[in-house]
């Protein structure tokens, strides 16, 4: 058998999952959003759910741009409002698999109220949150996940605030599946996404990701590779970790980053109330029993 080096080719085997005519994307070298998006595309394939039934909704920010690259029905909405926008789709089309793919600032700061209420309601929605510890798109400002003491464009003397632990928050407000992985743990991340897609209800996956431009540089992390190296050397997988012990501080070398699929429970997901009277069939909605939530569109007046 002849053995060759790398072959140069014009297209990637996953190109049909992306709007390949828009590649390369706008994200910086060393950014962790690319691997997370890559895992999402692979997870959509592996989920067995036809691509026509996947919908991706995002808000604003670097991660928010993901909706513009994945080749499924995709909505790039207002800052913080991806979850309620996705709620609307999920409620009226319960047959669709709706994923909100956005960043920590978008989902947890400006969109934090929607996040906690969507989880409380247990909306049938998968949320993937790329956490890069800062506002990347606007140039590295501090956000709700910036570690205490870390430097940021709006925290030049070090961040004075304690950050959220996202898995702890998500579990507390009612998410039925809660996981944390990193942009390096691509296999586990992809598998977690597939598991989330196969669940009913509100799921949450945090993806720790390097932002060498916004977060790495002011915090002496060098490039994306160096942050990925920190993930490699310091991450500990513990699916049964106590949720209140999942705090993160990239800068402290004595503290491990705990990863895992921490929560996987079942509870009834949100369905708009229906009462059994009135001529529902008149409007073609007798097929809602398949899932029980929302109105089917066929035969709408």
């Amino acid at each position: 058998m002849s053995v060759e080096g790398a072959k140069i080719v014009p297209s990637h085997h996953l190109d049909s999952l992306f709007r390949a005519d828009r590649l390369p994307h706008i994200l910086c070298p060393g950014c962790g959003i690319g691997p997370a998006m890559h895992c999402f595309a692979q997870a959509m394939l592996d989920s067995g759910i036809p691509l026509e039934r996947h919908v991706c909704v995002s808000g604003i920010g670097c991660t928010g741009r993901v909706a513009g690259y994945v080749n499924v029905d995709s909505y790039h909405t207002t800052h913080g409002r991806a979850i309620p926008f996705a709620l609307g789709i999920s409620v009226v089309r319960p047959d669709l698999k709706v994923t909100v793919f956005s960043g920590d600032g978008d989902l947890i700061s400006i969109g934090g109220n929607h996040f906690i209420h969507a989880a409380r309601r247990n909306i049938n929605l998968n949320v993937i949150c790329v956490n890069n510890f800062n506002y990347g798109m606007t140039g590295g400002q501090a956000g709700p996940t910036t570690p205490l003491g870390a430097k940021a464009a709006t925290a030049p003397y070090g961040n004075a605030e304690r950050p959220f632990s996202l898995p702890y928050l998500a579990a507390a407000v009612g998410a039925t599946f809660v996981a944390r992985w990193t942009a390096l743990h691509v296999r586990q991340l992809k598998e977690a996404m597939v598991r989330a897609m196969k669940k009913k209800g509100f799921t949450f996956i945090e993806v720790l990701a390097p932002c060498p431009t916004g977060f790495g540089r002011p915090n002496n992390i060098g490039d994306g590779l160096e942050e990925m190296e920190r993930y490699r050397s310091r991450c500990v997988v513990n699916h049964r970790a106590a949720l209140h012990e999942l705090d993160l501080d990239l800068r402290r070398i004595d503290q491990p980053f705990i990863l895992g699929n921490f929560v996987d429970i079942d509870r009834p997901h949100f369905r708009p109330p229906v009462i059994e009277q009135g001529p529902a069939a008149e409007f073609g909605r007798d097929d809602r029993s398949a899932d029980g939530g929302g109105a089917a569109m066929e035969g709408a007046p």
Binding site: A6, I8, V9, S11, L23, P29, G30, L184, G224, L225
Partner: peptide, 25 residues
């Protein structure tokens, strides 16, 4: 395995090179 590359898409992050378990790249 056979490696395939799209050189014009690469931004040189070196993730593939550093984390290849067989140090092929």
């Amino acid at each position: 395995g056979q490696v395939y590359v799209l050189p014009e898409r690469c931004k040189g992050c070196r993730f593939c090179i550093e984390f290849c378990p067989k140090k092929v790249l």
